[in-house]
Design a protein around this nucleic acid. Sequence first.
DNA 1: TGATTTTTTGCAACCGGTTGCAAAGCGCCC
DNA 2: GGGCGCTTTGCAACCGGTTGCAAAAAATCA
Lengths: 333, 333
Amino acid sequence: MAVTLKDVAERAGVSTSAVSRTFTEGASVSSKTRAKVEKAAKALGYSPNALASSLTTGRTKLIGLVSNNFHNPLFLEVFDRFTRGLQDRGLRPLLVNLRVEETDPEASVRMLRQYSVDGAIVASSTLPPSFAEAYRAAGIPVVHSFGRFTTAPQVHVVGIDNVACGRMAGEALISRGYKRVAFLGGPEQATSTQDRALGFMAALREHPEIEVSASYASAYSFDAGRVEMTKLLMQGPAEAYFCGDDVLSIGALSAVQEAGLSCPGDIGIIGLNDMQMSGWQNINLTTIRQPVAEIIGASIDLVVGTVEDPTRHPETRLFPCKVIERGTLRALG
Amino acid sequence: MAVTLKDVAERAGVSTSAVSRTFTEGASVSSKTRAKVEKAAKALGYSPNALASSLTTGRTKLIGLVSNNFHNPLFLEVFDRFTRGLQDRGLRPLLVNLRVEETDPEASVRMLRQYSVDGAIVASSTLPPSFAEAYRAAGIPVVHSFGRFTTAPQVHVVGIDNVACGRMAGEALISRGYKRVAFLGGPEQATSTQDRALGFMAALREHPEIEVSASYASAYSFDAGRVEMTKLLMQGPAEAYFCGDDVLSIGALSAVQEAGLSCPGDIGIIGLNDMQMSGWQNINLTTIRQPVAEIIGASIDLVVGTVEDPTRHPETRLFPCKVIERGTLRALG
DNA sequence: TGATTTTTTGCAACCGGTTGCAAAGCGCCC
DNA sequence: GGGCGCTTTGCAACCGGTTGCAAAAAATCA
């Protein structure tokens, strides 16, 4: 069924090496044989088997794209950009969907090795660093995107500075004159939540006149945000909340509206991510934008660079975020 | 770096065949050598190279997952389920992200062949059937998920009956006593839009006393829905709309609310898909649910079945949809 | 024209596995 | 102990390519 190198060689009346060489960049072939080969190849509809060639070249052009964030709408955009970006460089994304409860990188390491991926991208803010580290230990060039900053990184990390974002959110609330503010985080054990809380609290420590509190939703989800905010409303809520992320924010927003309160009139909300729905006019969430395109571009650059030079030192690249003004926070002043 | 079959064989003091056989299901190995091999393999951290073995077995366990729907939030769930479902069967999804303007299957065919995928799944309601057909012509077992029903299918098609859905939407509006209804479709050239319109109109043809009209948004997107509905509101809108899909519906809903009108008080809306956000309480869209899990399960079954038996005849499997009652249509009566 | 250099070509080994085949090993029976 | 049938094993060829090397061909130079 499939047409092979040998078929083409036979038809073109040349050796298999000649055929192979016409299909490899920068190999030595005369234009005459190249023409013969290309003609035969076209006639037979030949396309080289990337996997067979990977055996000798050691390159599959396969990149493992590992994630467990298949519920956060932001990640549809993330997958879109990753797959496009990889394709544009002639690479192929091999998707690995980890269940959220998975904590052992072992199975995914084996998987990535079986398919001899050239590199891997861990795209998740909730997977522990041990995943990326396990891949690196297995000799796979890897970058952890949307990962956590560490001072002595073992692997490339690309993302945002969550502490700085927390601070930014705190300052946004302060500058709008709120006097009782709060953090509504994701799961307390998530490092992203911890860092965001840290920055938020740090900003507010400089304003002791402002009352501040914190609580945590059970997940980064709409329902969790809604449930938690409903609870807070019954206990007497703060004037404004920094919510762990946009989905959570929208859940909280929904609870506020359901309680017959207005946002930002009665309660202000600022989120984090700026996913597509946050800009929808009937949601219109004030939030902090994560520069997704830049993060993904840098991630791909890093993984490709490390494939080419495996001795390359681990880097951390953090991108600045910015507040997107919409309708869930009262005006500045 | 990588440890190979030969290394294991040497260490275990057996031939490479013995090692190969301990790792292939149902091969003839004594328990004694199996034990030796397994011990050596574990000590060296060996895992077989799936690509090398594919050379002789002809199976890569790679399935091409081809889509151009990276903007419809429903598809995050689709990708989640597909990747999980494939993984559960020991298969690996190789993601192919087609730009929406891509109309020539040629490049993707070549790609799928280069990586010798065992099969392919076209997951899109907007890609023309020519893609799946081109894959099949190239000898790749394929199923078109969320594709269009045809009477003489060349490839497996799994999805919903869009005509029936249109009818169902029409009947939902009729039974609620609306007297002036309309279809607000996606792009007019999309076959899914055409079919839904067809069914909708057919249902209303049985009720000549009801006034019916149709218009089309420029895309299946929030903005397109919002723009189109804004236009309709200025021209004097119908009492209730069947919108092409949920994103479109939410855009339309947003326009209604922005105009200071109430939904369902002034204008009713019913969507199609039942994506996650439609259930969010601050959206609360009445819609028709597409049984995504079933569609995906059947798609995987079909592609796996066809890999095992390539002579298998093309099938069409359509799943029934159902109306999900929420808050954007007036109560039955 | 012939010698020399450069380019092009094919041979054959190899990448990491699998598998048909025949030989070796084993258990069992007489 | 020898003969029989069944299981296990290793050899070697093969899957579809790539590549170092030396020979052949072409280009360059004197």
